[in-house]
Amino acid sequence: MIRRAACFAVFLSAAPTAHAASTFAFIGTAKAVNQQNVLYEELHRVTGACTNAGFEPAAHTVEYQKGPDNGRFAFKTLQYDEDPRRPSVDFRQPDFGERLEIRYPDSNYLTIDWQPPSDSRRSFRVRYDNRLVVDAGFDHFVRANWPAVKAGESLSFQFLAPTRGDHYGFVLEPAPAAKMDADVVVQIRPTSLVLRFLVDPIILGYNQSGALTHYQGLTNIRANGDTNYTADIRYRIIQYPDCDLTF
């Protein structure tokens, strides 16, 4: 990991200096749940602006690598053009021939273009409202509601399931702290009784600054052509922006 951090520091230093004061960068190490073998690493770099309200993201890149000596096997780019909770998404896993794009052609509908592994391309047009959270937008949803989250309140929202072409009711609520060693521990779970039998909660850990430090649950990285990894991911902060993360 020392070598990985050094390489990532070079990656950051190569970025335009105009963004140095508004960059948030961190590394995630994903392991199988209750196991020690490393599945992959995530290199995150979020650029944005420091405002009176706090850090507002503009763009987010993620590179997925098997280890420090291996090139990336998947990558994701997100653009926060309209709302931090609903980024546009371009995600690719070339080893499986998979690509997923989420766009917002107007204020009421989003489009999903998904090329799954070994199957025909699928497209969806989905109506949504202001309750919708998409992909990594959950992280900004947590920080935008930071006082309520720390106070242990439960927050309802809609979460996009892009490969199903629909969104479903979820709740963000306190989780048992014993499940994770973090300053603030919450979970995201579906509100539908049927979905609760099918979908396990995602457990999230944050530090006092509002930075994500732990993630446990289903990921978007494939173990094979049919299933995705369920992983325990620990995040290490490389660079904070020069302003508060939370609003």
Results as ranks from 00 to 15, higher is better:
Ala30Arg: 07
Pro87Leu: 08
Tyr240Pro: 06
Gly28Phe: 13
Val184Cys: 01
Ser22Lys: 05
Ala231His: 11
Tyr40Lys: 06
Ser22Glu: 11
Val199Phe: 08
Asn108Gly: 14
Asp69Ala: 12
Tyr104Phe: 15
Ala9Trp: 01
Ala182Tyr: 13
Arg45Met: 15
Gly165Leu: 10
Val33Lys: 13
Leu160Val: 03
Phe197Thr: 13
Asp181Met: 07
Ser107Arg: 13
His44Trp: 14
Pro241Arg: 06
Gln65Glu: 05
His44Gln: 08
Pro190Arg: 00
Asn130Phe: 00
Gly152Phe: 11
His214Glu: 13
Gly97Asp: 01
Ala151Val: 05
Ser13Phe: 03
Ile238Met: 14
Phe55Gly: 03
Ile27Met: 11
Pro174Ala: 01
Lys179Cys: 01
Ser156Ile: 02
Thr191Cys: 01
Ile233Gly: 05
Arg45Tyr: 09
Gly205Phe: 15
Phe170Ser: 03
Ile233Asn: 10
Glu56Tyr: 13
Lys150Arg: 15
His140Pro: 00
Pro68Met: 04
Ser156Ala: 14
His214Tyr: 13
Phe75Arg: 07
Asp181Leu: 07
Val126Ser: 03
His140Leu: 11
Gly152Glu: 06
Asp83His: 14
Tyr80Asn: 07
Thr219Val: 09
Arg103Glu: 11
His140Arg: 07
Ile102Lys: 07
Ala148Glu: 14
Ile221Gly: 02
Asp244Tyr: 05
Ala223Phe: 00
Tyr168Ser: 07
Thr47Ala: 04
Leu160Ile: 04
Leu78Gln: 11
Asn220Ser: 12
Pro147Trp: 09
His19Asp: 05
Pro147Leu: 11
Ala148Gly: 00
Val62Gln: 06
Arg45Leu: 10
Ala148Asn: 12
Leu198Tyr: 08
Phe124Gly: 10
Leu43Val: 00
Ala6Val: 07
Asp129Pro: 02
Gln93Phe: 03
Gly48Gln: 10
Phe124Asn: 08
Asp106Thr: 12
Ser88Ala: 15
Leu212Phe: 01
Pro87Ala: 13
Ala151Gly: 05
Leu39Thr: 07
Arg85Leu: 14
Ser123Tyr: 02
Phe8Tyr: 08
Asn70Ile: 09
Ala136Lys: 11
Ala5Glu: 10
Thr23Val: 07
Arg86Ile: 04
Ser123Thr: 14
Thr230Val: 14
Asp113Arg: 14
Asp95Met: 02
Cys50Ser: 08
Arg92His: 08
